[in-house]
Design a protein around this nucleic acid. Sequence first.
DNA 1: GGAACTGTAA
Length: 600
Amino acid sequence: MRAPSSTITAHTNSTYRIAPSRIHRSSTSLPSPPSTKLLMQTHATLLRSGEIHDAIIAGKLISNIANSHPSNLPYALTFLSHPTNIPINAFAWNSLIRGFAHSASPENSISLYRRMLADGFFPNNYTYPFLLKASSYLEDRRVGLSLHATIIRRGLDGMDPFIQTSLINFHAVLVSVDTARQLFDESLVRDVTSWNALIKGYVACGQHMNAIYMFQAMQDCGPICGDEITMLSVVSACAHLGALEMGRWVHSYIERNRLVLNLNLGTALINMYAKCGEIDSAKSLFWEMQEKDVRTWSVMINGLAIHGHAKESLVLFAEMQRFGVVPDSVTITALLIACSHGGMVERGRTIFSRMRMDYGIEPTIEHYGCIVGLLGRAGKLDEALALIRRSSLKPDIVLWGSLLVDCMVHKNIGMGEIVVKEILKLDPSNAGAHVFLSNMYATSGKWDVVQEVRNFMKEQMIHKPPGSSLIEVNGVVHEFLSGDSSHPQFDGIYKMLDEICRLVSLKGHKPLVGGVSFDINDEDREVCLSQHSEKLAVAFGLISTNPGSVIRIIKNLRICRDCHAVMKLVSEAFGRIIIVRDCNRFHHFSKGSCSCGDYW
DNA sequence: GGAACTGTAA
């Protein structure tokens, strides 16, 4: 079990409420950047008046052009080779570097920096944040590391909060979040942006719990208060963790601190509610939002999809188009997920085959992942394999892995072997491929081959990542691993687990041991099965929450057949709604049945 | 003149 040593108490008594008066209406009231035409007119006027030869005036013009829109960058660059000797100062160089740092070709910022040095200009404390920003988008982290070395050599590290935050961000993105943390700890000045850079860094590398801890530490340190950008990261962390109580608390924090529920934050909150199983809260917030962009719609369409509301998801997509919002690649992914979980094979096929024609969106590996999942789940394995073979994209491990799971579910050993070979070509020590190989042989009773695979894995030290389930009780997130006995309430949990086994067996449940291969006899295999992480989590939920309350579990893998059957029976026997989010979708168990209709 | 900014396959 991993639980916060100290936790943010979720204010479970505060009701979930939206304050419409504080919902951000629109960004149209913001002044729009000067148009290209206007910039050109100003340029012409300054040329005529001769004021263009004033370095400060020229610098302002270059800055306005370079930062108006990325498409104006070539125009801004013409000033560097202008025949009329327009003076260029450090401010103008910085503006150009800044413009490219936020463009699709950030490497140009670095070229400009080199040119700036060659022309005898010294970068100042404004230059480095832009350069570090550009470096964080490059593949080669040596560029940013070399800049960091220059910053140290010039004695600028730890002196300027902007440089420090940029360094934290660069390290979090391209080096490691640990070095980012070190830089943060060493900073003499911390402001909300440096906290934000670090919190975002933890979210970006998947250390969501650490992101929450940092947010908590930020409050403990005072007097700095989180702003809208802090909340984006914190809400995103809650969504990943499935930490609903924490997410609700954060929502109320946003309201208490009168933060603006703007487009981005609203979208993040909708996503959080959907990913935490509260699809109705997600829906109400979605319709409350005055301004919605393609992300807001996609988040909602995806939310409905993972809850198995396929038809509603497609209806919302139609609605989105009526509102004139143009779908993007992620929207199409969400639609395919909806079809996949709703078993709408034909509709999914059509969307996939027409996406280029209908929406001008080129299929990516993610779309292939969805369609292979859709076909595989429906047992159309040959079609899925043919599709992968026909694709011009190079299939990755995720794509093959998805097909492999379906080969196992549909007991297609022949194709499973083909797929395993493909996976092992990409990653010879892939744990999943070895485990599935072993499982496939176990299913067909080839125990000598099972032993061979097992020995090989032992020799090569190949371990399958353990199943993990998270459950949040009173604002504390508890993690259970398969066969875990480290929880302080171990005794109570295992007593409850025995009780569950007794009750489900009275209902006629027979353990579905097909997915367990590493244990020789059936009894051991049943024990292994009975200690799957989601069963430990549900047992803990039953003993630590009020009778009748909803139990929410987040599982890192796909829920197994046996756990699925047991959850249905537990929901009936204990009169509980159990909501399990596995790595694919939500399962709402109630009164002995599941919202997925046993199709997942 | 500057740093931090939400959603996708398994």
